[in-house]
């Protein structure tokens, strides 16, 4: 019993989260727990607040002027909106992969080494190790190992996105946030990224926003359905898709709107 309690202790706990862009409220009283080493999918129509919610988890919304937050977000028991939080260290622990691949206009090697370097690693040997390990984790090593000095912007879209995943993993985060990571990719690249998500979950806790309900069903353990800034339903992915508890969820997943 005690052991089970440890297992289910959440990596992320969100309680009564409200978010405002200036006067406009974008999230309403969202509460959810995310278990460690799981994949959680956030689904919902455009503008429902799922990306906004994702960005509260590493405080990327801080960069937008006029954003105000009420409620609690705890990572491993610590409120990340406390005054004594070092936002840079928080973001090191909570990596992020974006909608469109956004490699730096640097070499493949320098892209992956960027994070470790800013966090103080200077040894060439150590950096080499991290770059190789991260690229292997992102299933890109074999394709690029002979051209690490080439510019990252010369890679294909799918390779660029895996590079961005490698870059995010290079700072050894605990949690990886993915904001529609496959929306700009072709089907083959998409399936590679989906396989990758499955492998990464053994080491990381993953939260993924997706427009694609099949994708949510394929990759995630739990799924959260957002609508108009509210968390409508949050359940095991199988349950949510086969036996939704809420009429709105059912309407959405059966394609009646959105």
């Amino acid at each position: 019993m005690a052991e089970q309690a440890v297992q289910t202790k959440p990596a992320i706990r969100v309680e009564n989260l409200d978010l405002y862009y200036g006067e406009k409220q974008a999230l309403y009283n969202v509460s959810m727990d995310v278990a460690e080493n799981s994949v959680t999918a956030l689904i919902g129509p455009s503008g429902c607040g799922k990306s906004t919610f994702l960005r509260t988890l590493n405080r990327m919304n801080d960069l937008i002027p006029g954003v105000r937050i009420e409620g609690n977000i705890e990572l491993y028991g610590k409120n990340i909106y406390d005054r004594d939080i070092d936002v840079e260290m928080l973001r090191k622990e909570v990596g992020m992969v974006f909608q469109a691949p956004n490699p730096f206009p640097k070499s493949i090697y320098d892209n992956v080494a960027y994070g470790p370097r800013i966090h103080g690693i200077t040894s060439k040997k150590k950096l080499d190790e991290i770059v190789e390990k991260s690229l292997r984790q992102a299933a890109l090593w074999d394709e690029v190992k002979d051209r690490l000095k080439d510019r990252a912007t010369g890679l294909s879209g799918g390779q660029q996105q895996r590079l961005c995943i490698a870059r995010a993993l290079a700072v050894e985060p605990e949690i990886v946030l993915m904001d529609e990571p496959t929306s700009a990719l072709d089907p083959i690249s998409t399936s590679k990224i989906e396989e990758l998500v499955q492998e990464l979950k053994e080491k990381y806790t993953i939260v993924i926003v997706t427009h694609n309900m099949q994708q949510a069903a394929r990759v995630s353990d739990k799924t959260a359905f957002f609508l108009n800034g509210e968390l409508i339903e949050y359940d095991d992915t199988n349950t949510l898709f086969s036996n939704p508890g809420n009429k709105k969820t059912e309407d959405y997943i059966t394609g009646r709107f959105g």
Binding site: M60, L90, G95, M96, F98, F104, I118, C164, R167, A168
Partner: peptide, 8 residues
């Protein structure tokens, strides 16, 4: 954003 998201 990518740079900020890595803790820059």
């Amino acid at each position: 954003e990518a740079a900020y998201a890595m803790g820059s």
